[in-house]
Amino acid sequence: MTAATEAFASIGYAKTSIAEVAVTAGASVGLIYYHFKNKEGLFFAIWNEYQHDQERKIRTALRAAQDDGVTERSQLLVLSVRTYLAGAWEARLVVRMAHVNDTPPGFNDERSLANQRWMRRNRRLLESADPYLTEAVLVAMLASIGALCGAVAACADQEAAAELIERAVRVVHGLVGVLESVDEPGRLDL
């Protein structure tokens, strides 16, 4: 999977061949096909492992924060975004694979399902007096997080990634703050 991730990230899905992945991995083509139905299955396995790892990291971070007494839902959401972006740096090749280069057919549908799960989960965290404003903030956050993952993965080093993540968290906190300033539906208390 590591060899495939490197190939997908550097030359893209279409140009990656299972034969080249096998040579790089020191494995046989047959062994790869034994574990993965096809190149598309390999790509999706890498993506799904990344998503599961990200969700595990977020759950761990949120449990630790709650154990430390954090109960404010907006703070928990900001923490989850910080954790996700940090994970994007750690798995930057997977992020590049999914956000920079071409992807297999159906991948946009897979990413869309992940985005829908994110929206459902976080809609509960950010309920406000103005449901349309909540939706607007969530959509803005989701689009920003996707782009930020690509930007974090493209950073030259860990220090640059950490600085970008800090600035991104400020932006997310600002978006969440818009909801906290709602006094009544349809009216922002500015």
Rank of each mutant, 00 (worst) to 15 (best):
4 A>K: 12
8 F>H: 12
9 A>S: 15
10 S>I: 01
15 K>V: 00
16 T>V: 08
17 S>E: 13
19 A>P: 00
21 V>S: 12
22 A>Q: 14
28 S>N: 11
30 G>E: 11
32 I>E: 09
34 Y>H: 15
34 Y>V: 04
37 K>C: 00
38 N>G: 07
43 F>V: 13
50 Y>E: 05
51 Q>N: 05
52 H>D: 08
57 K>L: 12
59 R>Q: 08
64 A>H: 00
66 Q>W: 00
68 D>Q: 10
68 D>S: 12
68 D>G: 03
69 G>F: 01
71 T>H: 07
76 L>K: 12
78 V>D: 03
82 R>E: 12
84 Y>N: 11
84 Y>S: 15
86 A>F: 06
88 A>E: 10
91 A>D: 12
93 L>P: 00
93 L>N: 14
98 A>R: 08
101 N>D: 01
107 F>D: 05
108 N>I: 11
108 N>C: 03
109 D>L: 13
110 E>M: 09
115 N>M: 09
115 N>I: 04
119 M>Y: 12
119 M>D: 09
120 R>N: 11
123 R>L: 05
123 R>V: 02
130 D>V: 06
130 D>P: 04
132 Y>R: 11
132 Y>C: 02
132 Y>S: 06
134 T>L: 02
134 T>P: 02
137 V>Y: 06
144 S>Y: 11
147 A>L: 10
150 G>I: 05
157 D>C: 05
157 D>F: 04
158 Q>N: 02
160 A>M: 07
162 A>H: 10
163 E>P: 01
163 E>Q: 14
171 V>A: 13
172 V>G: 06
175 L>P: 00
181 S>A: 14
181 S>F: 03
181 S>E: 07
188 L>M: 09
188 L>S: 03
188 L>N: 04
